[in-house]
Nucleic acid binder design. Structure first.
Lengths: 336, 336
DNA sequence: TTTCGCTCAGAAAACGTTTTCTCATGGTAG
DNA sequence: CTACCATGAGAAAACGTTTTCTGAGCGAAA
């Protein structure tokens, strides 16, 4: 039933080695090559990738491990990476950790067992030190503080600063910030947020929100039920923005009439809520492209120094008042 | 450098066969088992999956091929499937065809070369007959007309009917429908749409929209620029709804004040635009679960008859007037 | 013409496991 | 006490390729 390279060789009247050579594009006699190709056709041969990988000792596979595939930021980056990879003839294994360090470790183990060529990782752990792995790794979106890794991240501090500055120009004076507790990125944004507010003399409260849905909702509820409710809310990513929006609706608060809402990630629906949400747009395709390039570089030069690429985002000011403020102050982050 | 089962065996003072048996949970002498496990620990052994798959002839891998990973419907279904699969110790390979039959064929070839245990496929082709593959296959979201395959789909005709009925109760009399040209599902929804409209005496125009972004926008533009613009629009999926919304905004039309908008897929942002969009919610987790179950059944019984599971969706009526109409008429699709 | 490479194809080894085969040991039934 | 079967461990084969090794053929240089 199963047809192997042996059968093809038999059908073509050549040796298995020759078939292998034809298939991998080595130089062989044209007549033989044609015979082999015809035999491949007639026999319906399909190479067995497991055998090929075992013998050749390279898998042409890279692992892509993200924290949450439902987060449109990650799906967008994944798309870019997948496109680039398949153009280079690399297969990708996509994994989803759900911000769970245990799942992340399990997937990293899997990557070792798959003998992947390299891994692109959006790490879930923030401070935990993980055991060293023996494949090249590029981090995206987040770094691991204690470790030196190639990575490509947003300039979180500057972007959070721009956001606060924008809201301040609009006249907001009591801003609440919600930042992912698990991720290094969340905490960087928090720092940018607080520093900017301090500089501008804006009152803030900032909160580290856990990944768990229920706890996050509770925390948000507390923030809004507080005696002097903030007049603006900043959220650390697109998924959180969605959660905030839902809570605001439940409380009957209109955006931006009753309260302003801004944050990170430009997801396609954001232009439709109210007069549109002001956000920091991440250069998703460039993040993916850079990560992929860094990974192939690293594979080629395993011992070069670690590199960190920090990309600028773009402040998209929405809502009429927002646009007005933008024109007045020119608070626009330079792309790249 | 690379540590294999041979090294473990040496360290534990047993034969490689015994190590293999310990690792696959066969019964071995407890003392030996402990020695092996300790040796695994000290040597840092990681099994080579390629070798394992080659020898054992089963990959414990299933392929998941969807038409568009950016479509939240597919990401949601993927999540469910991935969760179920990893619980069963199955790895999944996720692929994205972009509605391109050529890419789909390429990925199906890949699946054969990977020797996957089975495939779950949301087919891009509508009528094209593909060559038979030698792995069990379950179709989701769409069927392939000429072929008999296990599949799990929405009751598209009934759901489209419910949508039209709902809009009719709301008083709409000129409804435009936009349906995916490539997919069988789009055409079923179109049929349900037109039949319902005919029965209720509603004027409709319906359009088969291509996957390409530009052409779709052009078609939509034509529909809205038409002399007597429709008073409601139905779109065949969540991504299309987004596109329509963008075009309406560009034309300065308010939803639902100027024109009603409804369709398929309940994506989280849909409750936030205007008074909320009325949609058919698909039972995504049940679709994923059913597909996975069908696939494992099929793997266990390769020769059983093909089964088709048709699931009901749920009409979510949004906007005050919509909710009112709902209360009045009780047009609620029964779940399951 | 002889010899020295050089190219190219087949034979055989190798990749790292699992599985089959073989054999020893020990317990049980006759 | 012998014969038989069951259990379990090591030896060796096998999985389907790629790659190394070997040798044949041939053109160019001496």
């Amino acid at each position: 039933m199963a047809v192997g390279i042996r059968d093809v060789a038999l059908a073509a009247g050549v040796s298995p080695a020759t078939v292998s050579r034809v298939l991998s594009g080595k130089s062989v006699d044209p007549a033989m090559r044609d015979a082999v190709l015809k035999a491949v056709e007639t026999t319906g041969y399909r190479p067995n990738l497991a055998a090929r990988r075992l013998r050749s000792q390279h898998t042409n596979t890279i692992g892509l491990i993200v924290a949450d595939i439902r987060n449109p930021f990650f799906t967008a980056v994944s798309r870019t990476i997948e496109d680039m990879a398949s153009r280079q003839g690399l297969r990708i294994i996509l994994c989803n950790t759900d911000e769970d360090p245990a799942k992340e470790d399990a997937y990293l183990d899997l990557m070792e067992e798959e003998r992947v060529t390299g891994v692109i990782l959006a790490p879930a752990r923030s401070a935990r030190r993980s055991k060293p792995r023996d494949f090249p790794t590029v981090l995206i979106d987040r770094t691991i503080p204690g470790e030196v890794f190639d990575c490509v991240v947003l300039d979180n501090i500057a972007m959070a600063d721009a956001l606060v500055q924008h809201l301040a120009h609009l006249g907001h004076r009591r801003i609440a910030g919600l930042f992912g507790a698990e991720s290094n990125t969340g905490q960087e944004r928090r720092k940018g947020f607080e520093d900017a507010a301090a500089r501008l003399g804006i009152a803030t409260t900032s909160h580290a929100v856990p990944h768990a849905q229920g706890e996050a909702a509770q925390m948000l509820h507390d923030v809004l039920a507080h005696a002097d409710r903030p007049d603006a809310i900043v959220a650390s990513n697109g998924v959180m923005l969605m959660g905030v929006l839902r809570e605001l609706r439940a409380l009957g608060l209109q955006v931006p009439a009753d309260i302003a809402l801004a944050g990170f990630d430009n997801i396609d629906w954001m232009e439709f809520v109210g007069e549109g949400l002001t956000v920091i747009e991440q250069p998703v395709e460039e993040i993916g492209r850079t990560a992929m390039t860094m990974l192939t570089d690293r594979i080629a030069h395993p011992d070069g120094p670690a590199r960190k690429v920090v990309l600028q985002g773009r402040l998209i000011a929405r809502g009429s008042s927002g646009a007005q403020a933008m024109r007045k102050t020119g608070t626009q982050a330079k792309a790249r």
